[in-house]
Nucleic acid binder design. Structure first.
Lengths: 291, 291
DNA sequence: ATATTTATCTGACTTAAGTCAGACATCATG
DNA sequence: CATGATGTCTGACTTAAGTCAGATAAATAT
């Protein structure tokens, strides 16, 4: 490792903890100690079982318990036994707790906006932040099957089309391509999978079913900031698993020699190149895989 | 502001505080509370007056005092009165304190290396980190006059030459260019100034004197990760100030139309384009400024 | 020379955070 | 249904961090 690398890393670490770290350690001025504020936020984000809360926040069970009692007394949280296991407890926010959670969210948004407003070249700064967040958080990636008509899915697809437009010499027009019908990518015919990191979509893939034993892989995309982290491979594995669960026996896909990384990936993961099987004007390479 | 910007920022902030922030809040396993460790590090980095220590670490004077007493008892720190002002106190590390400081540095380096080792595409990751650190730390930039033969200066110049080689169509060879003699960029003939952010050099500029009333500006360079933050302008201002202090009345410089940002900057800051004044093969634009 | 300001220090607090041992109820298993 | 394991809770601690009101001594102003 070159000597300078750690120096650069440490400079980054200092700059960030000074400017950004304060954000996470601040109580955001709501008159509540950090621990309690963190619990409210964790519950607000969907962590509800006490055990997983504890793990998430890295707290001792005694401390966790006391924090929850405190929030209960404040009227922000209610706890009840887990329906399947009376030992475990589940915490939920009361209406007032929800309000408090939203107040924290708004303050946090406002702080983020205030910090960003201070710097020029915001897009470059954000792109660098995306890259770092993706690299650091790569083991926290979650693959979720969602509705291809949902906002998250449309967000991914929009970025996918924009990228194709940039990559193809003649541009790309969705209308001219065979846009898979959304219903073909919903169970039981097919599936649509997104890779989420901390809520932000970083990639997607669709399995477009026909109702029979064959299906097509469509719309494989990974955000530029998250490339090189093996996300496309994870997405493809998830897509194949989903296809198997749908009793699909053979998968096909079309792609383009203008996307060499994609072609490479398919070659390396057991796909066999086949003859053209459609008359879509954009693709010029075709693959098949038996499951 | 687009809605997504704050979400991206917050994702970054979470990822970073989780992975990197822990570095700064950890005691690095030396059996000493964080506060004391931070004091050792601040002194080791050259903060010695108690007042500036306090400001740097953001501590109450009582707390600061107690931390210093603790470290004195441990035999790591010695304090004595400031020679010019008996009220102020100056803290220095004892030999044992120095050892302790180096131990912290080594642990911190090792942690940085361990984190970096986990990620592929290290150069891209580090470039993103540089960009962010420069943006966040831009008000912490310090301009220092140093010896052009020092390691820091040679580091800057090396990057400068590498950049020229990339930018010029025919490449760049230092030997073919009129490399300013280092002695001409040291007082009393001239000066060499670097911009340091948290110890890392982000830019440089040289004032190459002749011994008379005129001098040349040479080697203006800013690290790619730190462009667009106004550093070159700050460097030029510092160079002009240094030139005035050396009783120089007229500054000249040569540059190239292959470096449009530089040409732009000179035009905007009171420089007048003049005729070619040397036969260096690389430059094709020439400027002059009366001080 | 005296009064005021400034930099640091000391003592007496508070608060947040975290640890540990044991209590208690519930679940899984023979 | 007895047994041990599991998840949560309570009480009794410790430690780190930080606050605040003076005390003290040196510097500066009047």
């Amino acid at each position: 490792m070159p000597i300078a690398a750690t120096a650069r890393f440490r400079r980054f670490s200092r700059a960030v903890t000074r400017e950004v770290g304060a954000l996470d350690t601040s109580f955001l001025g709501r008159g509540r100690p950090l621990g309690a504020a963190r619990v409210i936020n964790a519950i607000g984000r969907g962590r509800s079982e006490v055990g997983s809360l504890r793990e998430d926040l890295g707290l001792d069970s005694g401390l966790m318990s006391r924090l929850l009692r405190g929030l209960e007394e404040e009227g922000l949280v209610r706890t009840h036994a887990h329906p399947d296991d009376g030992r475990r407890r589940v915490a939920t926010l009361t209406e007032e707790g929800e309000r408090e959670f939203r107040a924290y969210e708004e303050l946090s948004e406002a702080q983020a906006a205030a910090i960003l407003a201070r710097y020029p070249h915001r897009e470059a700064l954000l792109a660098a932040m995306d890259l770092i967040a993706s690299a650091l958080g790569r083991d926290r990636l979650s693959l979720n099957e969602i509705d291809p008509r949902s906002e998250t899915a449309r967000d991914c697809l929009g970025q996918y089309y924009a990228e194709l437009a940039r990559r193809f010499e003649r541009g790309f027009d969705v209308a001219r391509s065979r846009d898979p019908d959304a219903l073909d990518m919903i169970r039981p015919r097919g599936a649509f999978i997104v890779a989420l990191s901390d809520g932000l979509p970083l990639g997607c893939v669709g399995v477009k079913g026909t109702g029979g034993e064959s299906a097509e892989i469509k719309r494989l995309w990974v955000a530029p900031s998250a490339r090189g982290l093996g996300i496309s491979r994870q997405l493809m594995t998830a897509a194949e698993t989903a296809a198997r669960a749908l009793s699909i026996r053979v998968l096909r896909l079309d792609t383009s020699s203008a996307l060499p990384e994609a072609v490479q990936l398919y070659r390396k993961t057991g796909w066999r190149e086949i003859e053209r099987f459609n008359d879509d004007p954009y693709p010029d390479v075709f693959f098949e895989k038996q499951l």
